[in-house]
Amino acid sequence: MIRMEKVCKSFGALQVLKNIDLSVAKGEVVCIIGPSGSGKSTLLRCLNHLERITSGRVYIDGELIDERIDGKDQLKISHKRVAEICAEVGMVFQRFNLFPHMTVLQNIIEAPVTVKKMPKQEAIDLAVELLKKVGLEDKKDEYPSRLSGGQQQRVAIARALAMKPKIMLFDEPTSALDPELVGEVLEVMKELAREGMTMLVVTHEMGFAREVANRVVFMDKGEILEEGTPAEIFSNPKHERTKSFLQKVL
């Protein structure tokens, strides 16, 4: 579903991703853990063109969506096609990024109606169904500012799902939440994982990674240092830096 080959990314002189090779199979749930500033979020953002890579290749669902050599664009496909592929990659942000001028329902139907040209009624039916799924059908006419952080994040998940994505990216989805609201968001994500959604999750929730992930990837200073099953990573980390990181967070 996702394949990154030798991906490097620099912001000026600062190299944030170094030779990343990563693939995620269909239906797999992969959690990326690691200290702040290790490039986890940047890696995620390279998968839907929120950041462009400096060199390497990125494939989504078998299709090449980014290729650069020394910062030079090698990509042959049109902007339109890139946008179409990226629309199949749902993303949930740390700070929710709901559209504040729209109600919950409008937030969810916006992209299906404007991007996919879905008939409005169909989009509304879909939105209501998704809101039921995240347990917020009674909030459909509220503005986001009236919701708690946990509720906003659940709406953001529903909004991403409305595009019927093949892959869901989660960028520290619970880091901006009050501790007592984390659980409700993780529940929704677990439900998605059970349904077989392909998920790539950057998280500090070790409990979630241990319970839900098929594979855990440890990143530090822009490199993938270690990957394996949750049991391997959490019980028997091989790399020194993984050990010291896990000691601090567990």
């Binding site: 839907n48 929120l50 199949e88 942000f93 559209f99």
Partner: peptide, 16 residues
């Protein structure tokens, strides 16, 4: 800036 990013992540064009 997160607003533009969210819109792009949903597949919207710059103009949309």
């Amino acid at each position: 800036k997160g607003q533009m990013e969210a819109a792009k992540a949903l597949g919207m064009s710059y103009r949309q």
